[in-house]
Design a protein around this nucleic acid. Structure first.
Length: 850
RNA sequence: GCGGAUAUGGUGGAAUCGGUAGACACGCUGGUUUUAGGUACCAGUGAGGCAACUCAUGGGGGUUCGAGUCCCUCUAUCCGCACCA
């Protein structure tokens, strides 16, 4: 044990100690209250990055804090190990995705262990483990049998050169990122989860989630997007060629504007469009152009509206002899409503843009405060005009009336529509969980029997070849039906990796169970997750899918997987560019002669804006170098200092140095006082100055405790600084004071443990305590010491602070008023003035209004 | 475009309830000690003013005895938009 703070030695020492004693292994213990803390598991991309360090440091503070509060804490860790980057790496480096992934897992596990996180590694799992995806295939079968899985056609980004499906991020300016080929929208038959079946339930469940940030709940609510409207069948009045149907079903949320309808628009992927283009080659060519465009909500609202006029017309249901032209348009989603709308240009901006472009009629049917100018759609409140039986009504009333008339004519019905779409889970990729389905030669689609699971990923695949590697692997793909012996073809799609992460928190409860995905008794004890910590970028999809899974699995008593949720901010850093316009790593930049210079190339560098750390902009700091230079505790402390956890944090060299200095300061403070722990004192009560000192310590302890509970780690950190400053200045010259110093140091060591555990343990060793620090309970706040005898009451004149008086606690207004006379400048202000009234807040403020 | 968020000194940020704005830290300035130096310690540090005091929480307006906090409005920046995880 040395006088100098030596993180390299002590961190290794305590990590070994915890590992040997299996200090963080968790087991079901019905006698003890459980606490399940979980951080979003990482994708094993290579090395840990600062975002991980921040995420897991936050979670670890909570894990260690709750343990100190006598909870039976489970804090597991695993790997979200399937995904695209493994395939990309395989193509670039000619390695296998499996080897690449497991190598990364090893590296990252070592790094996480080097951070000293209190993780129960006995529960470790990787979603690419056979044992994990075996259970996932069983869950797939369960969902299938529950009727929650179906197949339908849907669109993908298709790279015709690589013969493969591209992720959105692989499409850059409409071109394939590797091939540069023009990306097409291709229809493929794909598997879907019927998440929309539970849309209502998922929305209502949000109300109960008190521990979730309001903004995340709102984002989910908007994502589900419940809306009330109606379907209307419009009769086709004119067409050319043979058309299979005589109606077009449209969906609207604004049936009150039915009399303002002036055209009809179909999605380019509407089934009727297939018929139209089979009759008309000119339209066909135009439609193919529209179909090649990527349509999402963003493009609908921003991009130029394009329409193709068809030879069809539809009849207006309420206006005799009025026919509306039918267009095929790029701003209609096939997945929303019925894939067809009627356009009411006066009251919808998209429709108006379209009508203005194609010179269509615009009829105003809602009139309100603002004049309608023909350029900005009128979407505000108002009264219905130009609308026959709806005239004079308010919007809501008119909606009701229109729907009831439509239902009376039996040409449509009231519907509830959700913006939420079913969850497409098919991926035409290799590195994912195989779908346990076979297509038999007799046309039957069968589920692979349990005894033949898992359907294993073949390892002998050629990723260099274009197309889906599983599709190309004929000996894997062609198989026999285990029941009938008939020839069969395996499903070559794999599952979306969001499926992997939609139930991993359940698997952590029974990580090694072979017979089932999880043991019921384990789930009953550990679930739900008490605190989930992760990035805001998962606010919608991952969390919604996990909620869907938990509900669909019908676990008794549990429908919400995450009791509380905390979303942390990102880690940012300045960006640097050299004179040739290349991004430069911060490590490669030095400051010389008041210029920034790139060390490796000796080029001048300019400093760019602070952005979230990303490999593409090279503004990353490798946590490994920080751990090596400063130690894990300093890195942890920095992550918790200054910025509130939910906000973005800017990495700075001076900040990490400050953290290191602080760790050193704590060590010096405890080490210099180590002799006082040898003695045992008889002091049971404090007086005077010592009482005030220890009172302040307990006040700080109180704030630290409450701050950690509220996730305000930066506030807790600031109070710990204050505590250290206070203890450092405390002059210890008598027995009573020595006892106070001892008590305060013990409190300090205990409260820093969740944040900087190695240093805390090393300090604890100096106190001659037999019990391990991690098993030491959180210190109790001595409430009796928080009561102050005197308080400062601020005196205001006309709401402005003019002075203060120190007075006995709970003194009344008269007592305060009397004391004012001692304050000269207030006396002057009050002279020869009439006091209109006074506002008195006990122990806080006296405001005198003149 | 829609949806969500954020804005306080030179910097990161603090401020239970509407009640002393700027805690704590970084940086900077001056000093002390040891060292070649990093280090450690002490003092100062929102702006203006000799001072009394005035001004100050993105801009403008409002409610209130009193607003960083509540209401309206504007501006700027960031995030998401369904195959990245």
């Amino acid at each position: 044990m040395s006088e100098k703070y030596n993180p390299r030695v002590i961190e290794k020492k305590w990590q070994q100690h915890w590992a040997e004693l299996q200090s963080f292994k968790s087991e079901v213990n019905p006698k003890k209250e459980k606490y399940y803390i979980l951080e979003m598991f990482p994708y094993p991309s290579g090395k840990i990055h600062m975002g991980h360090v921040r995420n897991y440091t936050l979670g670890d503070v909570i894990a260690r804090f709750k343990r100190a509060q006598n909870f039976n804490v489970m804090h597991p860790m695993g790997w979200d190990a399937f995904g695209l980057p493994a395939e990309n790496a395989a193509i670039e480096n000619k390695t296998s995705p499996k080897d690449w992934t497991y190598e990364n897992i090893n590296t990252m596990k070592e790094q996480l262990q080097r951070m000293g996180f209190s993780i129960d590694w006995s529960r470790e799992l990787a979603t690419c483990d056979k044992s994990y995806y075996l259970q996932q295939q069983k869950l797939f079968k369960y969902f299938f049998e529950q009727g929650l899985i179906y197949k339908k056609e849907s669109l993908v980004n298709w790279d015709p050169l690589e013969n493969t499906v591209l992720a959105n991020e692989q499409v850059i300016d409409g071109k394939g990122w590797r091939s540069g080929a023009e990306v097409e929208q291709k229809k493929l038959s794909q598997w879907f989860f019927k998440i929309t079946d539970l849309a209502e339930d998922l929305m209502n469940g949000l109300e109960k989630l008190d521990g979730w940030p309001e903004k995340v709940k709102l984002m989910q609510q908007n994502w589900i997007g419940k809306s009330y409207g109606c379907e209307i069948d419009f009769e086709i009045s004119q067409h050319e060629g043979t058309i299979d149907t005589d109606k077009i079903k449209i969906f609207t949320t604004r049936p009150d504007t039915i009399f303002g309808a002036t055209f009809c628009a179909l999605s380019p992927f509407h089934p009727l469009v297939d018929e139209i283009i089979s009759n008309d080659e000119t339209v066909n060519m135009e439609v193919q152009k529209l179909r090649a465009l990527k349509i999402n909500e963003e493009s609908i609202s921003k991009d130029e509206k394009i329409g193709i006029k068809t030879k069809l017309s539809i009849k207006h249901p309420f206006i005799k002899d009025k026919n509306l032209p039918v267009y095929i348009a790029n701003f209609i989603l096939m997945d929303y409503g019925s894939g067809a709308i009627y356009g009411c240009p006066a009251h919808d901006q998209r429709d108006l843009d379209f009508a203005n472009k194609y010179n269509l009629e615009v009829i105003q049917v809602v009139d309100g405060d603002r004049d309608f100018d023909g350029q900005t759609a009128y979407t505000e409140d108002g009264k219905i005009i130009n609308s026959d039986f709806l005239n004079g009504m308010q919007i809501e009333e008119a909606k009701e009336k229109a729907i009831s008339e439509i239902e009376k004519l039996e040409i449509g019905k009231r519907t509830i529509n959700y913006r939420l779409r079913d969850w497409g889970i098919s991926r035409q990729r290799y590195w994912g969980c195989p779908i346990p389905i076979m297509y038999r030669e007799d046309g039957e689609i069968i589920l692979v029997p349990d005894e033949n699971l898992p359907v294993e990923l073949p390892e002998d695949v050629d990723l260099q070849k274009t197309g889906n590697p599983l599709e190309n692997h004929s000996s894997w793909k062609n198989t026999k039906c285990p029941e009938t012996g008939m020839n069969a073809i395996r499903e070559t799609d794999t599952l979306d990796t969001f499926v992997d992460s939609a139930w991993y928190f359940l698997r952590f409860c029974s990580p090694t169970l072979e017979t089932e995905a999880f043991r019921k008794s384990d789930i009953d004890y550990w679930m739900p997750v008490d605190q989930y910590v992760g990035g805001i970028e998962h606010a919608i999809l991952h969390l919604l899918y996990s909620r869907f899974f938990t509900r669909a699995l019908k676990l008794k008593d549990i429908d919400e997987p995450f009791q509380s949720l905390f979303t942390q901010g990102m880690v940012c850093h300045n960006t640097y560019k050299n004179t040739s316009g290349e991004w430069v790593y911060p490590d490669d930049v030095k400051f010389e002669n008041s210029k920034l210079i790139q060390i490796s190339k000796e080029l001048e560098v300019t400093e760019g804006p602070i952005e979230s750390m990303s490999k593409s902009k090279k503004n990353v700091i490798d946590p490994q170098s920080i751990i090596t230079n400063y130690g894990a505790d300093s890195a942890r402390w920095f992550m918790l200092s200054d910025s509130p956890p939910e906000r973005d944090i800017n990495w700075s060299e001076s900040g990490i140095q400050g953290s290191w200095k602080f760790c050193q300061k704590i060590w010096t403070l405890v080490y210099q006082n180590k002799h006082i722990f040898k003695k045992k004192s008889q002091v049971s009560d404090y007086s005077g100055e010592t009482k005030r000192f220890i009172g302040q310590i307990h006040e700080q302890l109180d704030v630290i405790t409450r701050s950690i509970e509220k996730f305000q780690m930066n506030v807790a950190v600031a109070k710990i600084y204050e505590m250290v400053n206070l203890i450092s200045k405390f002059k210890c010259d008598q027995e009573e004071k020595e006892e106070a110093l001892r008590e305060s140091l013990v409190i300090l060591i205990r409260v820093i443990e969740p944040m900087i555990p190695h240093l805390a343990e090393e300090c604890w060793e100096l106190t001659y305590n037999k019990k391990a620090l991690i098993d030491e309970p959180w210190p109790r706040v001595k409430k009796e010491l928080l009561v102050k005898e005197n308080v400062v009451v601020v005196i205001q004149v006309n709401g402005k602070r003019r002075g203060e008086v120190t007075i006995k606690k709970d003194a009344d207004e008269n007592a305060v008023t009397e004391k004012i006379n001692e304050v000269q400048n207030i006396k002057d202000l009050l002279e020869e003035q009439n006091i209109k009234k006074t506002i008195f807040v006990p122990n806080k403020i006296l405001n005198i209004v003149l």
